[in-house]
Structures are given as structure tokens and as C-alpha cells.
């Protein structure tokens, strides 16, 4: 059946996305190629039929327009072929839609990852992405950074980091525990602190959010 493989692809990506909400699934290179191959096949077949209709229609002195052929009852053979062409064309359109849906869903998740995991992706996710997708991620990063820098620039305000202040603040300062070796971290006041495993520090909440997302620290008290 035409379009079966592409539908499979869409169902797969849907399943994978709901199954894993914080990562990107492996790119199904095989699946995408098979659908593209099927499209090529359908297209070639259509070209052939179309030319044949053209010849028949020419014999009957009717214009080459496909719609006219469909409506003309003079050439029954051409009518059958025209129906085939329409069917294949619909299958082609459907395959295209499915592939676009597959790709866009992945892009959507890749954009989300920027918000979940920050600007540097873990290797596990990188391995599941194609080279172009990695490039897209980098570019998205840039576009986002430019946007955040532009906010309020007319009002003499130098940008707003939308990835901070994710939760409404309950207290200004928080205690947090360091979960893994990180090294030097520079808070806004410029006094560098060294984050060692199992150490407890005290900092303004909003400055910790990136570290929390990266899984480096854990909040102890609110």
C-alpha cells in the first residue's frame, strides 16, 4: 500500500515523543529514505502514464489538460490511467505531509531541548541527531540569544534572560548541595566559588537555575 511506510514513521515518532519527554529519539534514516524511494517510484510511474495519456489525448484531438481528460468520455483508456495518476499523486502528497510532520516534530523537540538542557547538549542526545539537526540546534541557540539580547534594547535595557526565573521566587537566597564536581562558578557579584561534590553553598535562587538544569546542584531549602 502506498503511504504505509510514511504513516509508520509518523506513528513511531509520536510514540517515541510521548515515551521520552526529555530527549530526542534516534533519526530513522532508513525509514525516511524508504519513503523518498517510494515517492520517486510513484513519480516515475506517473510520468510514464501521463505521457501515455498525452499521446492518447493527442490522437483524440483533445487538449493535454488532465482535468479535461478526466471529464471527457471519449477515451476510456485514458480515463483509467488518469485515475491512476490522481491516486498516485494523492499518495505522493500524503507521503510529503508525513515526512514533513516527522521532521517538524523532531525540530520541535530539538528546540525544547534548548530549554530543558541548556545550550550544550549531552552526548546521548547529540548521537541521536543528524549533522543538519545539530546545525539547526546551534542556529536556534543563536537566534534565541539574539532575541533575548534585543528585549528592551530601545528602553536602554540590555536584554532579558528568559531561561532564568522559571519558577516564582519564594525566597531570595537558597541553600544548595553540589552533586558533582563542576569547578569554578562566577555568580553575579563576581566572587568566584568552587563547586565541589557534596559542598553546600548559599546563593540567590535565580543564579542557580542553569546549574539545576545541568544537574550539577540540588536545592536543599526554599
Amino acid at each position: 500500500m502506498f503511504g504505509e511506510r510514511s504513516f509508520e514513521l509518523v506513528k513511531d515518532v509520536e510514540r517515541q515523543m510521548t515515551g521520552c519527554v526529555t530527549g530526542v529519539p534516534t533519526y530513522d534514516e532508513n525509514g525516511v529514505r524508504q519513503v523518498l524511494d517510494e515517492m520517486q517510484l510513484l513519480f516515475d510511474q506517473n510520468q510514464k502514464d501521463y505521457n501515455r495519456i498525452g499521446q492518447k489525448v493527442n490522437q483524440n484531438d483533445v487538449t493535454e489538460n488532465l482535468d479535461v481528460t478526466m471529464n471527457s468520455s471519449t477515451s476510456t483508456g485514458a480515463q483509467g490511467e488518469a485515475a491512476g495518476v490522481y491516486l498516485r499523486h494523492t499518495a505522493l502528497e500524503r507521503n510529503k505531509d508525513c515526512l514533513l510532520a516527522y521532521m517538524s516534530t523532531r525540530l520541535e523537540r530539538i528546540r525544547d531541548l534548548r530549554w530543558i538542557k541548556g545550550s550544550v547538549l549531552p552526548e546521548a542526545d547529540q548521537n541521536n541527531m543528524t549533522e543538519q539537526e545539530l546545525q539547526y540546534f546551534t542556529d536556534y541557540n543563536k537566534i534565541l540569544a539574539n532575541y533575548m539580547r534585543d528585549i528592551g534594547v530601545d528602553g536602554d535595557f540590555d536584554g532579558l534572560d528568559l531561561t532564568e526565573h522559571m519558577e516564582p521566587p519564594k525566597s531570595h537566597m537558597v541553600y544548595f548541595k553540589v552533586l558533582k564536581e563542576y569547578g569554578e562558578f562566577e555568580p553575579e557579584d563576581g566572587k568566584i566559588i568552587v563547586l565541589r561534590k557534596n559542598c553546600v553553598h548559599h546563593l540567590p535562587k535565580y543564579q542557580c537555575e542553569t546549574l539545576i538544569r545541568q544537574g550539577v546542584i540540588e536545592i536543599l531549602t526554599e
Binding site: 525516511v32 514533513l100 521532521m103 525540530l107 542556529d139 537566534i143 539574539n146 532575541y147
Partner: peptide, 21 residues
């Protein structure tokens, strides 16, 4: 600034889909 972002994002996404698919 939202429009600038929108334009960049839409262009980049469209380019990606054109290029890969």
C-alpha cells in the same frame, strides 16, 4: 524583537526542511 525572532526562526526552519527533505 519578537518579529525579528519570528522571521529568523521561520526562515531557518523552512531552510532546514527544504535542505533535508
Amino acid at each position: 524583537e519578537e518579529f525579528t525572532f519570528l522571521k529568523n526562526l521561520a526562515t531557518r526552519t523552512a531552510d532546514y526542511l527544504k535542505e533535508t527533505l
